[in-house]
C-alpha cells in the first residue's frame, strides 16, 4: 500500500492554469497574474462565459473576497493515486469500486450483496441512507479486489432489476477528466489494457 501511495502524481497543472486564466479575465479588476487565485465562484461562472445569463442567489455573491477561500481548494498539492494517464476506470487503493444507482429505497444490504456477490467477493459495500427518511438514498458503492470481477458485475447487472427496480451499474472512479464524447470510447479500450498488464517487479 505504501508502494501505491508513493506513486501519487500531480494532476495536470495545465488544466488549472486554464481555469485561473479564464476566471482572471472575467474578474476584470484583476489584471495582474500574481493577484492570487480568483475565488472559485468566479472560476466557474467565467469558465464558459455564461455568467451573464445565470441566475445567482446567496450571500456568497455579496461578501468581500475571501483570500482563504481562494487558497484552500486551488492549491496544487492534493494527493491522488497513481494513474497511467489513460481514460479508463481507476483502481482504488485496495481494489475496484463500482456504483449502483436506482436502488430501491427499501433495499437491504443482503439484497445488494446477493445480487453482486456472484461476480466476486465483495470487499466493501456502502449502502447509504437518506438522512431525512432513513431509507436507502438510492445508490450503492461496491468494492471488488479484481478489475475483472467489477467488470463482470457491470456487464451483467447494468440494466438488471433488483427488487423490481431497474438499476444502473458503472465504474465509480476514472483516470482522467470526463469531457466530450471521446471519453466513452477511451473508457473501454483503456481499461482492458490496464487490467491485463502485471506490475513490474525487480
Amino acid at each position: 500500500m505504501a508502494n501505491i501511495e508513493s506513486e501519487a502524481v500531480d494532476f495536470e497543472p495545465e488544466e488549472d492554469d486554464l481555469m485561473d486564466e479564464d476566471a482572471g479575465a472575467v474578474d476584470a479588476a484583476d489584471v495582474s497574474p500574481r493577484a492570487g487565485h480568483p475565488r472559485l465562484k468566479s472560476a466557474i461562472a467565467g469558465a464558459n462565459g455564461e455568467s451573464a445569463n445565470r441566475k445567482t442567489k446567496g450571500r456568497g455573491f455579496q461578501e468581500e473576497r475571501d483570500s482563504d477561500r481562494q487558497r484552500r481548494l486551488s492549491s496544487r498539492d492534493f494527493d491522488s493515486l497513481g494513474s497511467d494517464g489513460g481514460l479508463g476506470p481507476q483502481r482504488s487503493i485496495e481494489g475496484w469500486i463500482i456504483l449502483v444507482t436506482g436502488v430501491h429505497e427499501e433495499a437491504q444490504e443482503d439484497d445488494i450483496s446477493n445480487a453482486f456477490g456472484e461476480f466476486g467477493e465483495i470487499k466493501s459495500l456502502h449502502l447509504n441512507l437518506d438522512r431525512r427518511t432513513g431509507f436507502v438514498k438510492g445508490y450503492a458503492l461496491i468494492e471488488y479486489e479484481k478489475s475483472e470481477e467489477a467488470q463482470s458485475a457491470i456487464t451483467a447487472m447494468n440494466g438488471a432489476d433488483i427488487l423490481t427496480r431497474n438499476v444502473n451499474v458503472d465504474w465509480a472512479f476514472s483516470n482522467g477528466p470526463s469531457v466530450g464524447p471521446h471519453r466513452r470510447r477511451n473508457l473501454r479500450s483503456g481499461r482492458s489494457q490496464r487490467s491485463r498488464s502485471p506490475r513490474r517487479r525487480y
Binding site: F78, L81, P89, G138, W171, S174
Partner: peptide, 18 residues
Amino acid sequence: IRKEVFLTPAVLKECKRI
C-alpha cells in the same frame, strides 16, 4: 488531508440527482 480523484459521469449524475 488533501485528496483528489476523478469521478465517472455516473457518479456525477448521481450527485446531481441528489
